[in-house]
Structures are given as C-alpha cells and as structure tokens.
Design a protein around this nucleic acid. Sequence first.
DNA 1: CTGTATCCATGGCGATACTG
DNA 2: CAGTATCGCCATGGATACAG
Lengths: 228, 228
Amino acid sequence: MPGYGQLCPVAKAMEILDERWTMLVVRELLLGSTHFNELRRGLPRMSPALLSKRLHTLERVGIIERSGPTARPAYTLTTKGRELSTVVDALGAWGVRWIGELGERDLDPHLLMWDMRRTIPVERWPRSRTVLAVEFADTAPRTSRWWIVVAGDDVDVCDVDPGHVTAATVRTTLRALTAVWRGDLSWPTALRSGAVMVDGPPTTRRQVPHWLGQSLLSAVPRPAGVAG
Amino acid sequence: MPGYGQLCPVAKAMEILDERWTMLVVRELLLGSTHFNELRRGLPRMSPALLSKRLHTLERVGIIERSGPTARPAYTLTTKGRELSTVVDALGAWGVRWIGELGERDLDPHLLMWDMRRTIPVERWPRSRTVLAVEFADTAPRTSRWWIVVAGDDVDVCDVDPGHVTAATVRTTLRALTAVWRGDLSWPTALRSGAVMVDGPPTTRRQVPHWLGQSLLSAVPRPAGVAG
DNA sequence: CTGTATCCATGGCGATACTG
DNA sequence: CAGTATCGCCATGGATACAG
C-alpha cells in the first residue's frame, strides 16, 4: 500500500483513514475514551495488537497524543484529530440514514448498553438512586439481563444484579431496542406494537423512554420516510 | 473482513467505504465522471480489475446505478451515493488543511492537468480560441510540456503541441504548480518568488492566474497560517 | 492495567495479458 | 471502448499467549 499517488486531499486523507478500524478508533476518542481498555470496550472485536498498532500510527501522523510514560497512559486527540469530527459526523449521518438493515452480527448487547450509557440524560432521572432493569428475550442468558444505575450524575451499567430495588423493567429484544436507539423505530411505535414493553408503576413507565432517550444520530431524517 | 460487528452507523458506513480506492471512485463520480475509462483517467494507479470490482460493489449496495447493457455503459450516483458528498467534502477539507506534505509519488502531471481542466473558468478566457502552454522543469520529457486549449466553452488539455499560437507559457515545476493549485501557495507568492513564471505579453501574463485559478479546496484556511 | 510478541491463514490487490 | 481472466506475492489483521 504505497499510497494512492494522488495530490488530491481526499486521497491523502484516505491514505491514513481507510485502514480497517482506524475511523472507529477516532470515533471512540471523539466520544471521550482515553485509555487503552476503555477503547477496547468500544471496539470489542478488534484485537489488542491491532489497536496498539493503530494508536501508534495515529500518533505518528499527529492525530492523537499519548501522555508521557510517567503518568497512566492516555490518548487524546490533537486539534488535527478533533477536526475529524466533521468526517465522523458526516459518516454517521449518512450511515444511519441509508444503512438501516443490521445483520445478526451487528447486534451486541454490550455495545448497545455501553453506547446508551454514554448519553443517558441523568437530569431527567429522579434525584435519588434509581435502577432500571433491561431484559432481552433473544440473547444468550449471560447477556440478557442488564441494570442501569443512576445516582446523582453517575451512571453505571451492570450485567449482574446490583441488588437494589428496580424502578421498572424494560422487556424487549436486542434488535428492537437497537432499532429504537438508532431511531429506526420511535419509542411510541415500539411501545404500541409491544416490541418494547415496560413493567412498573404507571408514572414510571411513562418516564422510561425519556430516561433512556435515543442516540444523537436518531434525529437524522430517513429517506423513504415512515420510520416509526 | 466480516464487518465490524457494530450497530454504530459510522461502523456500518465504513464497512462499505473503508476499502482501498472506494472513496476515490466516489469522488470521481461526484466530479462528474461516468464512463469506465473516464474513471480510470482520474485513478491511473488503480487496476481495471479492481475498478470493475469496486463498481460492482457500489452498485450492489445502491450507491451507483449502471445504465442498461443496451446503451454505452455509464455509472451514475444514486441519491444514496450523491449524499456521500458530505463525507467527501469533509475529507477533502480536512486533508487540504492538515496534510500539506506531498511525496514525490503524489505528484503527477497527468492528474494535475486533468484536475485543473475540470474547473477551468472559461468565462475568464478570451472569446476566441486561446492556447496556454505549461512547461515543467522537473518531470520526464514526455510529460513536461502541456497545452490548454480553450475555445468557447470547450477545454482541452493536450500533451502534444496542438500547433496553434500560444498566448503565454507557464514555466514552473510540477511541485510548485501543484502547491499553487492546492492552495498551499498563493499565486502572488509563487510569481514573486519565481516558483512559477509566465512568459508572454504583459497584459496576458497578468490574466493567467485567473485563467487557471485554484482548486475548490484551496480556499480552506490552514492551521499554522502563513500559507503564501 | 497496558500493552507487545508471535504465528499463521486469508485474500486483497497489484501487474499483466487478453477478450467482446 | 469496456471490461474480464489469471497469477502470485506479501501484507493485513485475527487469534492467542505472554510480558512490564
């Protein structure tokens, strides 16, 4: 891969960015991850060797900086790297708008919960510690039960019962909750159809959609329309 | 490459777009190329086999349409494909802003002339047929002399002398004219330093920079400033 | 926790030649 | 002009184990 041999800035940019996983590493950094295992958590199918290699490349070309070896290693975007947000945003908007069909392999409860966790609107939750349970009907038993614990400004996602009383329980499939999260399916439609069900006191039940919200990209309008 | 296994729209987009050359094929289509050999001209280092493969993939995923086998084959972007302009534009702006250093292999007189040809502002040229010669001091003899012929709304670029009288001659290096074209170097600076010289009648000489112009991305501001 | 080392299979892709 | 066919290398990157 001796580059593209082109003067075009698009080509020069893609020489760096078209390598597998690279753009997703940048996405993770833009979303705020800084440590190696934090990045791994958002990129579970990427081998640590490859992640290491990509981080070195990104550092070499000046997209990220690595904190000195004295402190705990941390990766942060430089200005050059931060400006890739325009590219990532454009890719995300295009992707959510035009690529609606997800394969079975694209559905991952860990990633979904990890993703939702990032943008849980804590200000809509009760002041006191509140636990919301999520149950997937269609995943392996080990990954079918989750608990979201919001206490003050802290959000935790557990795959083991934290042992507190739950305010409500969301019963759904991984595919359905993923569709709602991405904005392929609206909360009202999902609830009406029963694709997502909420158990709990009536007042709480009505709050749950606002507690969870949707991904930032869910607001992107879809071409054919009719997204539920 | 079994995909990324992620629900994230950025990942779904990159599953298609991170393959080598793909984004450059899209760029060529966005710039108006429609036929196979037209695409090849903008992608000279891409093998025809690979171009064919990429076109098939892009058609399969709905980014391009191929005209029926009855007519002369032509490739056009669908709406889905056309909306990739946001991605390509973001890549181009980031690339021209942050990747200024070009290697020797990135400099190609064919590509530069082909690229300039696309956006020659014919309305600034004289009404009658006008020929501008370009001579590179640092390229192989076969690729050192070019002629830009503007007649009405038609622009032609030749690497053999068309045999008409030339209004002026641009003498420069491939690297310098490339820098001017990309906007890494301004016309005034290039002329003052002698990096680009124009031979011809004084009135014409002053017009030449406006006849050639600069790439659309040249207007993107640069980080460190000081771009000539 | 933060990576590196090693191994290996796969297949991507570059080069060239050739066909309708 | 518009591709397809074939070949073969070598690098990519996936998996696993291990080190500081």
